[in-house]
Design a protein around this nucleic acid. Sequence first.
RNA 1: GUCCUUGUAGCUCAGUGGAUAGAGCGUUUGGUUGCGGUCCAAAAGGUCGUAGGUUCAACUCCUACCAAGGACACCA
Length: 580
Amino acid sequence: MQNVVADIVADVRQALQDVYSVPCAMEDVTVETPPDITIGDFAVPCFSFASLYKMAPAQIAHDLAAHLCEHSTVGVWEAVGPYVNVRLHPEVLFASALRPLRPASPTGRQIMVEYLSPNTNKPLHVGHVRNGVIGMAVAALSAFVGDDVVRAEVINDRGVHICKSMLAWQRWGGGATPATTGQKGDHFVGDYYVRFAQEAVKDPSLADAAQEMLKKWEDGDAEVRALWRMMNTWVEEGFRETFAQYGFVFDREYYESEVYQRGKDIVEEGVARGVLVREDSGAVVFPLDATVFGVQKDGSAKKATLLRADGTALYATQDLALAAQKSADYPGLDASVFVVGEEQEYHFQTMFALFRAMGFSWATQCYHLSYAMVNLPTGKMKSREGTVVDADDLLADVTETVAADLRKRHGDACDDAEIARRAHIMAHAAIVFFLVKTNPKTSITFDVRTSVAMEGVTGPYVQYAYTRAKSVLRKGQARGAVASQDSLARLGAVDAERVVAQQLIMLPVTIARAASVHDPSLVAHAAFQLAQTFHSYYNSTPILTDDPDVTAARLALAEAVAEALRTVLALLTIDVLEEM
RNA sequence: GUCCUUGUAGCUCAGUGGAUAGAGCGUUUGGUUGCGGUCCAAAAGGUCGUAGGUUCAACUCCUACCAAGGACACCA
């Protein structure tokens, strides 16, 4: 049996056809949940039918309810004002709720999700983590609805900012390495980046020295290149550790240093094809469509520069080269999502226009998933000034807090390794859930003391619902009670039970919507809501009862909730725990 | 100056034009380990930034304004 929402839509369309002899489009029938379960399990608003049938919504609802009560087999229908509400037969409601939540069959569409893309001059901070969790979740959502997803990372491993840490290390490093200091590589290098900023305030000539080093790097100076390779390796090793800790995975990694040279060739190709224009100064620009981008203050056309007058490459040059490389690597690519901060919205608009002009197959399906900043109560995070919440420190701190609590709670029942494992999974859940539960467009003020909570709308709260369900299932098994779908008709007398089912049924609808609008926060909210509903049900209704049929059915419901929570949390890169 | 985003309870945030605007935190009160309390139940708390408009119906759409953040070619 398919999801009952589809059955409701089908029955309503059939009823409209039968009663008014005029068909109605599938998308005109929406199924929603009534404000209160006592009104019904699901509701169909009749407003959209009014214009089609030239009748008042309430009249249509009345006619529909009368007809559906006779002809629909899913439940009992009732018109309330402009709504038709249905109270489903228990076996229909719960059979639908117990259908496992599974990924859709392949769509044949290939989509790239590019996210995180760090600079190799400093460690990752909580802003990067927000980018990472959004990227991972968006990729997982696309995969869940059947797309072939490529998770891509661009490592920004060249540029003057990289040279700054290199220069600082040369001057003040004294030959120290991550190995000799016992420091994580990215932190080690990041300290020199901060050091450079401090010294540059006192000695302005340092900025020139960094530029000079960049020139040497571009000329292929052996010594500079060797230093660059060594320090980048340190940073990357550090990043890899952080990625593993947070669960960030990439199917393809691009290095800026590898693509940036090819950028100039692509630019020449663009000039030859007339897409790009070489100006008198020698700079190459992309003229922007005035109807989309407007004009400059002086009335002249806007443009984006792809190559400086002196022939050197820009950020945009690399983006173009990267786009060409992606097209070469994935000839069947249909769409591309870029998870990048909101400050780059204009840049991506111009790039997307350029990609279309260059004729990349996926260019018409580009989406800049722009997310707002993570700020601190004291203001913006600034790496150069060291005012950041470091990704590694954050996870370590929260993990330690959770571990201390677990030790108190479980004492001797758990060994240290198990405590550490659980603490990591819970701390990770708390951080990730906090960052993903807010709409990406909303800027977050991150206060370590209050943001990473364990109660309320949090990852651990949702995890706990899973753990509770699994615990009851274990306890039931010990008593010889096993989940079974044989007596589903025995469920539904308790309203809380119906709400649980209702939420389970709506879950795939929410996931599909979240995937289509690239918004993982919708999934986080659905997960929380299901957990909350289950907690409430759990407290109000005994699952293990004296009646074996009722117990078996309730266990089946609990199992479905647990599995649904596990699946949905996995979309957010969050793990569950059998015990916590 | 132009464009984009945001503005909902003390705080942090939900809210596909439609039923009584919802959660969490905090506050007050009750449940005190029962199927594990990182839980549940209840109370208090709202001119949905302001003013117009469209609509049978506006937190939702449109216009203007106010406030915050961001962007506006040779930075990334």
